[in-house]
Each structure stands twice: as structure tokens, then as C-alpha cells.
Amino acid sequence: MTLEILGLDGLSESVYRAMLADPDADLDALAARLGVPGSEVREALRRLVDLSLVTERSPGRIYVPVNPDVALDALLSLEQAELTRRERQLLEARAELARLVRNTGEKITPVREVRRIDDLDRVVEVLRELLARCYQEMLNVVPGAPIPPDLLADTAPHDIALLKRGVRFRTLYTRTQLADEPMLEYMRMMRRHGAEIRIADTLPHRLAIFDRTVSFLPVDPRRPRNGALVVREPAITANLVMLFESLWAGAQDLDEALEAGAPAASDLDRSVLMLMSSGVKDEAAARQLGISDRTYRRHVADIMVRLGASSRFQAGVEAVRRGWL
């Protein structure tokens, strides 16, 4: 049985056992017997002196081993004193925690802040800081076009680390992204790690909510690269949580969405797309369809979101690719 529990390393224990076997052995004899340099034996002897297992009769020259029974009593007394000290510290810590729990009923003014970040690199840094500090739940809305594979690879370690900490992670994606093979594989990978994923036909804007206390959303939903807002205002965040839960309730589970496939374009969708690609002004297009200008523009916006397009030209290209035109 080793004596590590008493604070002895392997060499110190070997030196002590050798001294008990031959109390008259000097430093050179001990070094020769153990096959180690004399400098290492000297360091081991110093540790043994500190532990009161060896007495130093002549500084640096003569060492005498202490009877194991006497030494053990002394060491056990030291260990017991240390345990008593630690027990007292733990009791004090428990009392302090109990006091904090009792004080949770007191009214605490929550942090209120809306911070704008315009620098894109800083936006990424802040988002990762929020991810690292999240400890309970993250709500995530990811609209728009499919995310490039290199960005998915860069994001994956941070998302997986979140899940490994036991954080509940719910994400909403669009059917446009579902049709992209790298994104579909990413969704499946995240789900294997414990993420919950649902698919919606359309999503309003980028949104991330951390522990239902901090929200992260774009300054301009139509131009998400123009900066972000970090919101620590409880009332705003509570409303954004309600928005997320509403979107979540109306979305499909990933497997259900894959089975259902992408929704086909309606006759109205095709008519709007034809007018968009022909270059007709919105007012004239609305008159041709017999609807108001506002309703026509709403249909255009909805189609662009569903196609994951950032421009009308891109919407036309994507519509042709999907067979809508």
C-alpha cells in the first residue's frame, strides 16, 4: 500500500522505507541503494522532514527516521486539523448560500440595456460570448438562404459545446434551408447531439434568446449584416420569447418536414413571380391582379422569404430552380 494519502510521493516513500530498513545509511548510501542521484534523495529528505517522518540531526548531513507509529499519529493529527478547517469553510459556505436563497424573494432591479453593435467582427464575438455564458436554454431563429458550409463548420463547435453543457437548444429553420444538403446534414448532426429542430415555411428575422434574459437580433431584418442589437430589457425579451414560442408551435418537426417535402407554389405565387420578373411596376402589377398595392408588396416579401432571396432577381432565379416558373 502506498502512502500518497499522507502527502508522500513515490521517491519520498522509497527513501523513508530504505531508512527504516537501514537507519544508519547516509545520503550516498541511500542514493546508491535506490539508484537515483543524490540531489533527488536530498529533496526527498527535505519533504520527509517537512512531514515529520524524518528528523535532521545535522543540517544537510545526518537524518534519522521517526518511528512509523509516532509519525502516523502526527500526520493524522495534521490531516484531521485540515479536514476540520475544510468542514468549517463548507458550513460557512452553506450558510452563505442559504442566505442568498432567502434573499431571492427581495425585489432585485433587472439589468436594462439595448446595445447596438455595428462592427460585424464584434457582432460575431458578442454572439459567441453569449453562447459561452448560456447555461439553461437557447432559442434560435435562423431565416434566409442556406448558410455556407465553411460558416457551418465554424459554428458547429460552439453549438455542440452548448449542448454538452446540458443547455436546451431549440432552433427554427426554413424549408429553403432544408433543401440544401450541407444544411440538412448540419441539422441532423445537431439533433444527434441533442438539439431540437423544427422547420417553418417562413421566418421573420434572425433571433437568438439566451436563458430568456438576453436577446440578440439584427438592427435591420432585411440587411442582417448591418449590425445587431443586444437586448437586456425584460419586457422586450418576454415579447420575443412569445414570438418564438408562437413560431415554434406552428412549425414542423424535422422528420415531418422531410416527409412532407417543400410546398408547391400557388397560382397567386406564380402570377406574382411572373410580374416580378417582367419588370412591371408594383402599382401596375397590383391592378392586373385586382389587389391593393400593399397586398401585392406583402406577397412579394413573403415569396422572397420563402425562397431565401435577398433581391427580386435572386427570387426569380430560385423560383426557376425549384420549378415554380
Rank of each mutant, 00 (worst) to 15 (best):
L30S: 05
A179E: 12
V317L: 14
V114D: 02
I199S: 10
S278L: 10
T109Y: 01
F244T: 00
Q80G: 04
Q80D: 06
A29M: 05
Y16F: 07
A257S: 12
Y296T: 07
C134V: 14
G38P: 05
A74T: 11
D121F: 09
G323V: 09
V305T: 13
A93N: 04
A208G: 00
R175E: 13
I291N: 01
S310H: 13
R206H: 13
P221F: 02
D150T: 14
A153G: 12
P234H: 11
G144V: 10
G166T: 07
Q136A: 12
D9I: 03
P148A: 15
F216E: 02
L3F: 13
E79Y: 03
E13K: 01
L275W: 12
A98K: 10
H193W: 15
M1G: 15
V305H: 09
E256H: 12
R61G: 02
R99P: 03
L162T: 15
D180M: 11
S14E: 14
L3S: 10
A95Q: 04
L243E: 08
M19N: 04
P224L: 06
S277N: 15
T174K: 07
S39Q: 11
P263G: 14
D255Q: 13
D50Q: 03
L162R: 13
E256I: 02
V214H: 00
V142C: 11
L45S: 08
W324P: 01
L151S: 12
P263M: 14
E79N: 06
T2F: 00
R222F: 08
E79L: 15
L273P: 09
P157E: 06
E82G: 06
L229T: 08
M304W: 04
I199V: 15
A71N: 03
V142L: 15
P59V: 04
V219S: 05
L325E: 10
A228E: 01
R122H: 12
S58L: 07
R33T: 08
E96P: 04
R294E: 07
R322W: 10
M242H: 01
E43K: 15
A93G: 04
L90M: 12
L240R: 07
T104M: 10
L45T: 05
R133Y: 08
G194K: 08
E82Q: 14
L97G: 01
D28M: 03
G194P: 09
A44S: 12
S39K: 11
G194W: 11
I160M: 13
E125G: 00
D180A: 12
M190E: 11
A315T: 07
D159L: 03
P149L: 13
A132M: 02
P224N: 05
G227W: 09
S310P: 07
Y173A: 11
D282V: 10
A81I: 04
Y63K: 00
P204I: 07
G290H: 01
E79S: 08
L20K: 01
A262T: 15
R122I: 06
L91N: 06
V123F: 03
S311G: 09
V66M: 00
V64K: 09
L275F: 12
D26A: 03
A93S: 11
V141L: 11
E283M: 08
